[in-house]
């Protein structure tokens, strides 16, 4: 397969995974799904890289959502079943121990938002815009958005974004917790690398356990979570 709709590079401990269909504002298609799956696995196994940046190529945006021309025909039930079982891309994001940063600019639509919410930190340029148009096209979010959005921006904002399909600017996105940082468009790349380098300065064992603990806090009872945190800290200190 010609691997070019998602690029992978690595430098100074930082991996960069680039959505690379700039002529289509990086619209997410089947090839991209399969390649992103491979690239995430590559990052997981890449001993040279401790942090990954996920970004989109071209000036127009990070990702304009699912490519309607490809997802227009519904996959057969057999195909849908095998994708669910073998290409669990969204589940793979959650299995990665190393930190991931989404670097967002321009259009961040549908699966673009969903991919960014499967990363640990979201940094965006001040000119980015965010929307979830799925239900007006007759389908619904399919890259974990109905699950991750509520956990980041709450039930209220999630229902509002999906049901009214409204578009948010970066400032509003920051205010409701959809993104974590805003920088000027011209500084986005430098600031993203700075953020990644900053994480690299810490002991990566602690970084990875801290990441895991925060994710587990949503899945465990408080007492269980406190016990896990203490045990992991003691284990790493010894």
């Amino acid at each position: 397969m010609n691997m070019d709709s998602v690029l992978y590079s690595s430098k100074d401990g930082i991996a960069t995974i680039t959505l690379n269909r700039p002529d289509h504002i990086n619209a997410f298609n089947i090839q991209m799904r399969d390649e992103l799956f491979e690239m995430l696995k590559l990052f997981q196994d890449d001993d040279e890289s401790s942090v990954a940046i996920i970004c989109g190529s071209g000036p127009k945006g990070f990702c304009s959502g699912a490519d309607i021309s490809e997802f227009g025909t519904a996959p057969s039930q057999v195909m849908a079943r095998s994708v669910r079982a073998e290409r669990d891309l969204w589940g793979l994001f959650l299995e990665i121990d190393k930190p991931t940063i989404a670097s967002l600019h321009g259009y961040v639509i549908g699966s673009g938002i969903e991919i960014s919410l499967l990363c640990d930190i979201r940094i965006a340029s001040s000119d980015a815009s965010f929307s979830m148009p799925e239900i007006s096209l007759g389908f619904m979010p399919a890259a974990a958005g109905t699950q991750t959005l509520t956990r980041f921006i709450g039930l209220n904002n999630t229902l509002d974004m999906l049901l009214t399909r409204k578009s948010l600017d970066s400032k509003t996105a920051l205010a409701i917790g959809l993104i974590d940082r805003i920088v000027d468009g011209s500084d986005l790349q430098d600031e993203t690398i700075k953020l990644a380098s900053n994480i690299l300065k810490s002991d990566q064992n602690f970084v990875q356990v801290a990441k895991k603990s925060v994710y587990l806090s949503e899945e465990m009872g408080l007492m269980e979570g406190l016990l896990w945190e203490k045990r992991m800290f003691q284990k790493l200190q010894s």
């Binding site: 589940g91 399919a142 974990a144 949503e218």
Partner: peptide, 10 residues
């Protein structure tokens, strides 16, 4: 859990 939720959505 998030993992179950993602499969439910799927």
């Amino acid at each position: 859990t998030l993992r179950q939720g993602i499969l439910f959505e799927s």
